[in-house]
Structure formats: structure tokens, C-alpha cells
């Protein structure tokens, strides 16, 4: 069964005098455990697709289903709660909460889910160990390198045990070593724990690791390739 399914997805931006069609009849199915990279030139609609699939934006037309539940018709508050329970986000600029320590950043999501303190602590520490940040529990983001921050962001994205993780250009701001390190971690999570990953990226290093590469051109899927790795 597909974790994510889109039907004739369209997105038109009317912010300028000339309407811009960012997505054009996108039909897509992503199965549980896939490691998918969405690629394409700037302005091809990668981020828009991720935003709509992640429930951060609404399509102009078409439908989005997560585990057969249609999310594009959900009210704001329900959608926020849905995101909290089902979707993990990793952003290009890490976007950790600067006033919280690494462990608090990870716990924060579970706190929103009303988990017990004991469970939050246990899982936050476990996830931070998993991404190689065992010695940085009590360090705030401004004392961490970009790569370390992104690893904490991955731990945060995993904290809510989401159905999938959406990562928008997660390696764009990282040096090569940090990028490889991050990709190793995410590939392992995908391989060993069957975490479904969807990346939007320009980064060849990511594309090489992905098992499915969807290419968008002018808002439409121009190529959808599967690889066995």
C-alpha cells in the first residue's frame, strides 16, 4: 500500500500578474520504506510538491492521500496535528530551536505529542546516539557545526515515529564530509528501520544513494526511475 499518493496534483501561484503553474497533474505513489529523491532544475516544483505532500501548503487542484487519508481537505488544526503524528521534516537550514539543547530539540516533538518525560528522555537520547550525537545532548545549536545540527534535525524528525520524512535539500548547506555522514545515517535508517525518505535535492551525492529518482520539469514528472542498491 502506498504511504503517499497524489492524484492530478496542481498548484498555481497567483502572486504575480501572470499565474505560475508550479505543479501540473502530478500523479505519484510512494511505498513504505522507499528512499526517493525528487530532482529537477530550480523552479521545477520540487519544493512545492514536498510542501503539499507534507501538508504545509494546499494544492489548487487534485488530491493528496497519506495512508489513504485525504489531507488536502483537512482543516488547519487537524492538519497540524496530522503533521505532528505522521510526518518528519528536515530543512535545508536545519531550523533547530536555538534556545533548546540538542536533546530538548528532539524531545520537543514528543512533548507536543504528550509523551511522558521518561519516554521523551529515553527516545531523545536513543535517537541522538543513533545519529552520532551522544556527546552533545546538552549543547545548544549555536555550539554545533552545520553537519551536527542537521543530524539533530534528523533525530528530531524521527522522534514522532513518522510515516515518512520529507527532507528539503538537507545537504545543500553541508560540506562534503558532513553531507556523506548525514547520508550514511539516513540510508542506514532507511535500510535497517525501513524509514520512508523523500528528498528534494540537486545534490548528486543524494541522488546516488536514492533508490528511486523522480525528475520534475516545469511542474510535471518527466522521469521516474527505480534503482537497486
Amino acid at each position: 500500500m502506498a504511504v503517499i499518493k497524489t492524484l492530478d496534483l496542481e498548484k498555481i501561484y497567483n502572486s504575480t500578474h501572470v499565474p505560475v503553474k508550479a505543479l501540473n497533474k502530478v500523479n505519484l505513489e510512494i511505498e513504505k520504506g522507499e528512499f526517493t529523491a525528487i530532482v529537477g532544475p530550480s523552479g521545477s516544483g520540487k519544493t512545492t510538491l514536498l510542501n503539499i505532500v507534507g501538508g504545509l501548503d494546499k494544492p489548487t487542484a487534485g488530491k493528496v492521500f497519506i495512508d489513504d487519508e485525504e489531507i488536502n481537505t483537512m482543516k488547519d488544526n487537524k492538519l497540524i496535528n496530522f503533521r505532528l503524528r505522521n510526518i518528519g521534516f528536515v530543512f535545508q537550514s536545519y531550523n533547530l530551536i536555538p534556545v533548546l539543547t540538542a536533546k530538548e530539540n528532539v524531545s520537543f516533538i514528543m512533548l507536543l505529542q504528550k509523551k511522558s518525560k521518561k519516554e521523551m528522555d529515553r527516545r531523545a537520547e536513543e535517537l541522538l546516539r543513533e545519529v552520532g550525537m551522544a556527546d552533545k545532548f546538552d549543547v545548544r545549536p549555536n555550539k554545533l557545526s552545520g553537519g551536527q545540527q542537521q543530524r539533530v534535525a534528523v533525530a528530531r524528525a524521527l522522534a514522532s515515529r513518522p510515516k515518512f520524512i520529507l527532507a528539503d535539500e538537507p545537504t545543500a548547506n553541508l560540506d562534503t564530509a558532513s553531507a556523506f555522514n548525514l547520508l550514511d545515517i539516513m540510508a542506514r535508517l532507511n535500510r535497517e528501520e525501513h524509514i520512508t525518505l523523500i528528498f528534494s535535492t540537486h545534490d548528486q551525492r543524494v541522488i546516488e544513494r536514492a533508490r528511486r529518482v523522480i525528475t520534475l520539469v516545469d511542474g510535471a514528472i518527466s522521469k521516474d526511475e527505480q534503482f537497486n542498491q
Binding site: F91, S93, L112
Partner: peptide, 16 residues
């Protein structure tokens, strides 16, 4: 703005 956007994205309710 960006941080608030992240909080809303990851599931922090509007009330919170």
C-alpha cells in the same frame, strides 16, 4: 519568522 514556521510545520498547534 523562520523559526515560527518550523514550529508550525513540525506540529506545534496554533494555540501553543
Amino acid at each position: 519568522t523562520r523559526e515560527l514556521g518550523v514550529l508550525l510545520s513540525v506540529g506545534m498547534s496554533k494555540v501553543r
